[in-house]
Each structure stands twice: as C-alpha cells, then as structure tokens.
Amino acid sequence: MLSADLDDIRLHYRIDGDPDGAPVVFSNSLGTDLRLWDKVIARLPKAGLKYIRYDTRGHGLSDGTPPPYGMGTLVRDVERLMDHLGVKGAVFVGLSIGGMTAQGLAAKRLDLVRALVLSNTATRIATREIWAQRIANVETGGVEALADATMIRWFTPAFRATDEFRFWRNMMVRTSAEGYIGCSHAIAGTDFYTTTAALRLPTLGIAGSEDGSTPPDLVRETAELVPGSQFHLIRKAGHLPCVEAADEYARVLAEFIAAQAH
C-alpha cells in the first residue's frame, strides 16, 4: 500500500505497469475507489506506460475530512499527488467526478496534463437541488439511502443480474458518509463550461449508451467543447463502462494513448 502525505491529508494510491514508463493517471467516480480501474488496467499494455491511480478524498483508503469539499480542493489533491510523485505530462483519465477533477486540473496545471479522457462526465452534473436532496438523504440515512436508485442509474439490467453487481453496491455503501457528502458538495458547486471550452489539448470523451447519470449526449457535448476532440460511445453499458465493458474501454483507451505518442 502506498500513501502520500500531503500535509492536510494522506492519499492512498497505487502504481502499475512500467515504473519508468510514461504516466497515465486515473481518477475514480463518487462512491467508488481505485479498484474501479482494475479490469481496464489489466487489459492495457504493460511496456512503456506507468499507471497511477488514487482514492479520492473521503473514498477508499484515503483520508476523509469534514464536508463540504470544493472542487478546487479535489483538484489540488491530485495536483499535489502528482507533484509528490514527480509526474508531469500525463494522460489523465477521469470518470464522473474524476472527469470534473480532470477538467479542473487541465485548466490549472497544463504542465501536468498532456491529454484528457473525459469518461461519463460533464462540465456540470445534475442540479444544486438534486445534490441538496441527495446530501440530505445521506445525512439522515447514510449512503445506503441512495444505493438502489444509484445502482439503477449506474448499471444496465443485465449487469445488475450478475454476481459481480453486489460488490459494486457494497463498495458504494461502504463509502464514508463524510466523503460522499463532501464530494457531492463539490459536484453541486461546479460548472466548468467556460474553463473547459478554453482547453486546447487532445481529448477523448467516453460514454455508456445506458448511462442514467451522465447521458451520452451530455458527455459528447462536453468533449466537443475542446476543439479536435474525439468521442466514443460504448453500447449496452451504463455509468461505469470500464466495469461493464472493460475490453472495449481498454481498447479505445489504449488507442488514444498510443495516438499521443505517449
């Protein structure tokens, strides 16, 4: 287990692949941890690439802090982690809130990010009112209060019928309430439309056709804010296509990384 002491917080992270390879950084979604990327990293090339992933503040084995969190705090967390590891010029892959973190980091520190993968994300996700209700539900009933409705938005009926599904539900409900609430505040307060539209770097948008949290058109519109971007739709997958369609996700991601001569 690896941890980075960033003064006010200790983040859990993991490195796979070639220790001397070009960096690829992954940022997880709300209610998951770095295991979100297990299937994809297992399918990506091992030579010449170093895969870095971490648990977002309040998730997995990373420290939690009292909510609310601002998106700037989450961006600063990974910024400091990358500085701590001496990483620059990474391909940055973010899913959902991780994709928002990616947008914020690229706008702030272009030296750290040479290309973006915006997976199942947007410049703004849902509304302040929706997030306020979700926060209230967690405050009174814990993360369990949101679990069933979230699983319907996240996964296709076919996946929800598998044995694997229950582990993802377990992962979500075991997320700390403070971490879930803190990150929910960060999402609620974020609208990156203007900053993302000003980005000029290689960008790939990835969406799942059955995603009930960030529908494909929303992801496409987000990617298209960046001139010259690409977009890939993974059919028969929901909000976490890296779980439901790992083969296709890894193939598309590997092709994008290779195209950057990374």
Rank of each mutant, 00 (worst) to 15 (best):
P202Y: 01
G48R: 03
A207F: 09
W37I: 12
R57K: 03
G86H: 01
F159L: 04
M71L: 15
P45N: 06
I97V: 15
H12D: 12
E164W: 09
D55E: 04
I9P: 06
A254C: 05
D5H: 14
G72W: 11
Y54Q: 03
V91F: 09
H262W: 14
D7I: 14
D111K: 00
C183M: 12
R153Q: 12
L110T: 14
E255F: 03
S229D: 09
K46Y: 01
Y54A: 08
G182P: 09
V87P: 04
W37H: 08
I97P: 08
A132N: 06
A107E: 07
N137W: 07
G31F: 09
G189V: 04
A4L: 01
G21I: 01
R35C: 14
G64A: 15
I97Y: 08
E221N: 15
N170L: 12
V25A: 07
S229A: 15
T175L: 09
G179L: 00
G17A: 03
T56L: 15
D33F: 13
I52N: 01
A188I: 06
D211G: 09
D18A: 00
V219Q: 13
A254D: 00
N170Y: 15
R134W: 09
V113S: 08
A258D: 12
M71T: 14
V243S: 05
I41G: 07
T190I: 11
V226D: 00
T222W: 01
E224T: 10
P19D: 00
E144A: 10
T214M: 05
F155M: 02
D111C: 09
D33R: 08
V226L: 11
G99D: 10
G89L: 03
C183E: 08
F159I: 04
H84S: 06
W168E: 02
R35H: 15
H185T: 02
V143H: 02
A42W: 03
A107T: 13
P67N: 10
C242V: 10
L118H: 06
N28V: 03
